[in-house]
């Protein structure tokens, strides 16, 4: 066989076998991965909505899909706002929780925010994941910072320097977390109340 042809054939076969194996593995594992992520998020809902006995997931489409740019399309898909409703043992709605996201210093910061059903005030904030600088940016996880949001509603500015105190040395992380909460709160409120 021609040598260069052989090279191409061998590489193509290896590549195809590899892609085949990977798609099978991906098919089996992706289900479990998604289940795990959903379960982790659900258990976080119990933390931000004290007294919750069961969680219900509500799906709301936030924006029209823009199909011209694949990246924007993915973002738009993610904008399908998932709202987690927390119910107590009797089935009364205690409040709702949403995920807020923003780019911080080292990467994406994801937070879960719990809001009271009756007053629309923020009850609790939990940082789900981040990659901020240890010792500085990661203080957004601390209770001292998270508690600055408790009691805020969509009427409040929720802006660093106005009603939220800055974290010295971690301005970008603190601003990103605050932006995620402010944007997420107005979107979640609109989606949650608007759909009723």
């Amino acid at each position: 066989m021609n040598e260069s042809l052989r090279m191409v054939v061998v590489l193509a076969i290896i590549g195809m076998v590899s892609a085949g194996i990977l798609s099978v593995v991906y098919g089996t594992t992706s289900v479990i991965i998604e289940e795990n992520a959903a379960r982790a998020l659900e258990s976080a809902v119990y933390e931000v909505l004290p007294g919750t006995a069961s969680v219900e997931i509500i799906r709301r489409q936030a924006n029209e899909l823009r199909v011209d740019d694949p990246k924007e399309m993915r973002e738009a898909e993610q904008e399908t706002t998932l709202i987690y409703q927390g119910l107590d043992a009797q089935g009364n709605v205690l409040g709702y929780a949403f995920v807020g996201e923003a780019n911080g210093y080292g990467g994406v910061i994801r937070l879960l925010v719990g809001v009271d059903e009756a007053t629309d005030q923020i009850l609790n904030v939990k940082v789900l994941s981040h990659s901020e600088t240890p010792g500085l940016g990661d203080r957004i996880e601390g209770e001292g910072f998270r508690n600055r949001f408790v009691g805020k509603t969509v009427e409040d500015p929720i802006t660093i320097g106005q009603d939220i105190d800055n974290l010295s040395g971690a301005t970008v992380s603190a601003t990103a977390a605050t932006d995620a909460i402010r944007r997420g709160l107005s979107e979640a409120l609109a989606a949650y109340r608007g759909g009723e």
Binding site: A19, V25, P70
Partner: peptide, 16 residues
Amino acid sequence: QWFILEPLGLPFLQTL
């Protein structure tokens, strides 16, 4: 990433 892997749903081929 954004023109091949994401639209075709092949994120697992990213590393490769």
